[in-house]
Amino acid sequence: MKQISNRFSIAVHILSMVAVMPAKCTGDFIASSVNTNPVIVRRIMSMLKKAGLIKIRPGVGGSNLLKEPEDISLLDVYRAVDVVEDGHMFNFHKDPSQACPVGKTIEQVLRRELTEAQSAMEQRLSQTSIRQVNEQVLAASGLSGHMDSSL
């Protein structure tokens, strides 16, 4: 089964770290937290920068959010990192038989259902902000109330 790109979860991880500790957030530092190659982190950070979500300080390192954490929704992140091809989460198999009553109509019928499912997911993502994610992360790690650069 093909999954949605992991760029989304990595991008949320990056934004969460930048919100909590912006001065420390170099590509290498974030990559150590994500446990991935720094090139992947830098590529995703570039996508977030292009979307107007972060500012990257070249040379000296570190990053800053360009919006308040409560003003960045998970839907903003989802869209910034292109997790789905051509804006469609679901793909269809190629060239079903037009001679078959199921084959000639299945995509039309199924597309309507899958479009509604994608819309519902996007609606849910729009209701959660990076601040809310961070509050949950910090509470789960026992660091509630430490949403600043002192970590």
Rank of each mutant, 00 (worst) to 15 (best):
S5I: 01
E113C: 02
S126Y: 03
S5L: 01
V12G: 02
P38M: 04
E68N: 13
T115I: 05
G103E: 06
D76H: 14
G87C: 08
P58E: 12
Q127A: 12
K50V: 03
S119D: 14
I54M: 03
K50W: 04
V109S: 10
A23E: 13
R57I: 00
E68G: 04
Q127R: 13
D82C: 02
V41P: 03
V81W: 00
A51Y: 06
Q127V: 00
N134E: 06
D76Q: 09
E70N: 11
T105F: 07
E107A: 07
K67L: 11
R131S: 13
K50M: 08
A23C: 05
V41K: 08
E70Y: 09
S5A: 09
E70V: 03
E68H: 12
V60T: 11
N6E: 10
R79S: 12
C25T: 12
I106H: 09
T26P: 07
L114R: 14
S129P: 05
S73H: 09
E85R: 13
N37T: 07
V12F: 01
I54F: 01
Y78E: 09
H13I: 00
G62C: 09
V77Q: 02
H93V: 12
S9I: 09
F29K: 09
G59T: 08
L114H: 08
V81Q: 00
C25R: 02
A31V: 08
T128E: 06
K24M: 11
D71W: 04
A11Y: 10
T36L: 06
K94V: 08
F29D: 03
I30Q: 11
S97W: 04
I4T: 11
F8V: 05
S33C: 04
G61A: 03
Q108F: 08
A31C: 06
D95V: 01
I106D: 03
N37R: 10
N91I: 01
A31I: 07
A117W: 06
G62R: 05
R124H: 10
Q127F: 00
G61L: 04
E107W: 04
V133I: 15
Q118H: 04
E113D: 14
P101R: 11
Q136E: 10
D86R: 15
V39D: 12
V77A: 07
R57G: 00
A31T: 09
V102E: 07
A139Q: 15
E122W: 11
E70P: 00
K104Y: 04
T115H: 06
P38W: 05
R42V: 06
S5T: 10
I30G: 08
G61T: 02
A117M: 10
Q98I: 08
N35S: 12
L75E: 12
T105K: 12
I10L: 14
M45Y: 01
Q123S: 14
I30L: 14
L66C: 05
R57S: 08
H88L: 06
V109C: 07
V137C: 07
M45L: 05
A31Q: 05
A19C: 06
V102I: 15
V102C: 09
K50I: 02
L15I: 00
A80L: 02
F90H: 14
K55R: 14
L138M: 15
I40G: 00
M121E: 07
Y78P: 04
S129V: 06
A23I: 03
S63I: 01
G103S: 07
G52A: 10
E122D: 13
E113H: 14
N37F: 05
Q123I: 01
I72L: 04
E135M: 10
P101L: 04
E68F: 05
N35D: 13
R43L: 03
V39Y: 09
I40V: 15
V12C: 11
A31R: 07
